[in-house]
């Protein structure tokens, strides 16, 4: 009897960037932040739905969430949004075939679309970092 060994990487293939490029980590983070935002968004629909029962219901809901745990959670969702939005703009452009260059005869040493568009990825990450720093300052220090 001959046995084949199933060797799919499974979820580790999504999350583990390993020795692959930076893009692979950007991909994993985009996916994770997307799921995080979706989970928050579904809850958010119901939490904001408390407005139906008038201002008192809204205030009691806000009081329930007014503690450090939810505050940090809210900040994480905010960061996830910033990353997902900036990286998302990059992905929309790339997936519409922009920023990947034109095909041509490959000559050694080979270049590829991922290398050519690397500056855009770095630029997107720099913009995200600046927004995150500002968001942190605004969220924890400037807003009273």
């Amino acid at each position: 009897m001959q046995h084949r060994y199933r060797n799919n990487l499974g979820l580790w293939g999504w999350l583990g960037g390993g020795r692959y490029g930076f893009d692979r980590y950007a991909y994993a983070l985009h996916r994770l932040t997307g799921l995080g935002i979706l989970a928050y968004f579904l809850m958010h629909i119901f939490v904001t739905g408390t407005r139906l029962n008038g201002p008192e219901a809204w205030e009691s809901a806000m009081n329930f969430f007014d503690n450090p745990l939810f505050r940090v959670g809210e900040f994480l969702v905010y960061l996830a949004f910033l990353y997902h939005a900036v990286n998302g703009i990059r992905l929309v452009l790339v997936e519409l075939g922009l920023l990947v260059g034109k095909p041509g005869l490959p000559s050694y040493p080979y270049s590829n679309s991922v290398i050519r568009h690397r500056p855009v990825l770095v630029g997107a990450m720099v913009i995200t970092a600046v927004l995150v720093l500002f968001a942190g300052a605004d969220f924890f220090f400037l807003t009273k």
């Binding site: 692959y20 692979r24 991909y27 985009h30 992905l91 997936e95 490959p106 270049s111 590829n112 679309s113």
Partner: peptide
């Protein structure tokens, strides 16, 4: 979703 690993490892520059 453009993780780019395929183009990185391609030994013939197929992209």
């Amino acid at each position: 979703h453009f993780a780019g690993a395929c183009s990185q490892v391609c030994p013939k520059g197929v992209d």
